[in-house]
Simulated assay, not measured.
Amino acid sequence: MSFVLVQVIVGGLLLGAVYALFSSGLTLVWGMMNIVNFAHGDFVMLGMYVAYVVYTLMGGGPILGAPLATLVLATLGVIVYFGLIRDIMKGPMLAQILGTFGLALLLRYSVFWWFGANFLSMPQDIVGGTFAVAGLRIEASRLLAGVVALLVTFGLHLLLTRTSLGSKMLAVAEDATAAQLMGIRPDTMQAIAWAIAAGATGLAGALIANFFYIVPTVGETLAIVAFVTVSLGGFGSVPGALVAGLLIGVIESLSGYLIGAVYKDIVVYVLFLFFLWFRPQGLMGKM
């Protein structure tokens, strides 16, 4: 296997780890409340703009921008839950779809109004340029994004499976009424889930802002990636989102290298539909 091909695969894994990070938030919200957040991609977009503002106003890189974007989006997640989600959860599925879709439009066109429609970008060498490892040339910004995303996604899985807070959140996901009888406040747990999910999108957005284009409509593309990742991994499964994100990242990179960048999305979606034909519950989902 040539060094170029190995480099393409490594790049795909690093990008796939970021896909897994912001997709894990979507699968967490679904697992907790059976609600699909159509504004999820726009949360990632906001994280990118927070990182851009931090760089523009303070000259700070991801070390400053990523934590701030995580905090801002986590706060927004709590506000959205109490201001919108808690009420529309009581209504039909159509209300949930239209409510989160309307939120996506609100966020997107608010950014249009404030920043305009121009494509923005940040210096690719803001983290440290490019360096060589075992003959492979890797951008420091992509390596940082991939490693941090991988660690945070794994940490989220540990939070849900190895902590008291995670047990309470899973109990609410299983049966909110029974959990309330045991002294657990469903509202609090669901608000925390939204804070974690939105915070993960903010972190992912700040990390990819260093090598991805920044524009108000980028959330549309990222939302599709998130839905494909969650569906492929299995709704409600964080490990499934991680595996699916890595797979999609590698498939995208290999398709772009072997066939052409124009066709990489087609390859991903064709393989995705082909896989779901045989396993509709996803890699780690339950029937």
Rank of each mutant, 00 (worst) to 15 (best):
Ile79Asn: 06
Ile214Ala: 15
Gln96Val: 00
Asp42Trp: 07
Phe212Cys: 02
Val4Gln: 12
Ala204Leu: 00
Ala193Gly: 07
Thr221Arg: 06
Gly245Asp: 07
Ile184Phe: 01
Ile85Cys: 01
Gly233Arg: 12
Leu144Lys: 05
Leu156Pro: 03
Arg108Ser: 02
Gly135Phe: 03
Gln124Leu: 13
Thr100Phe: 02
Gly183Ser: 02
Leu207Ser: 03
Leu107His: 04
Gly155His: 06
Pro216Gln: 12
Phe154Ile: 11
Phe278Cys: 02
Met169Lys: 01
Leu15Trp: 09
Ile88Phe: 14
Ser255Leu: 15
Leu21Glu: 04
Thr177Ser: 13
Gly116Glu: 07
Arg162Ile: 07
Gly31Lys: 11
Phe131Leu: 13
Gly61Pro: 04
Val230Tyr: 03
Met169Thr: 02
Ile63Met: 13
Gln190Met: 14
Leu254Ala: 04
Ala173Ser: 08
Val54Glu: 00
Trp194Phe: 15
Pro216Val: 12
Arg279Tyr: 09
Ile9Arg: 06
Gly183Glu: 05
Phe275Val: 07
Gly99Pro: 10
Arg108Glu: 13
Asp87Leu: 05
Phe3Pro: 08
Leu273Trp: 01
Val218Ile: 14
Tyr257Arg: 10
Leu271Phe: 06
Thr163Ala: 11
Val53Gly: 02
Val148Ser: 06
Val270Pro: 02
Thr229Ala: 09
Arg86Ile: 07
Asn118Asp: 11
Arg142His: 15
Leu57Lys: 11
Val215Tyr: 10
Val127Phe: 06
Val18Lys: 00
Met287Asn: 02
Ser255Asp: 13
Ser2Ala: 10
Val152Cys: 08
Ile214Gly: 04
Ser24Asn: 07
Ser121Cys: 04
Lys286Leu: 09
Ser23Gln: 11
Ile126Tyr: 09
Ala209Met: 07
Gly116Ala: 09
Leu73Tyr: 08
Ala206Ser: 08
Ala200Trp: 01
Ala132Tyr: 08
Ile259Glu: 07
Phe211Gly: 12
Gly12Thr: 05
Met45Ser: 09
Ala149Met: 10
Phe82Gly: 05
Leu106Gln: 00
Ala51Val: 09
Met287Thr: 08
Thr188Cys: 00
Leu71Asp: 05
Met1Val: 15
Lys264Arg: 15
Ile196Met: 04
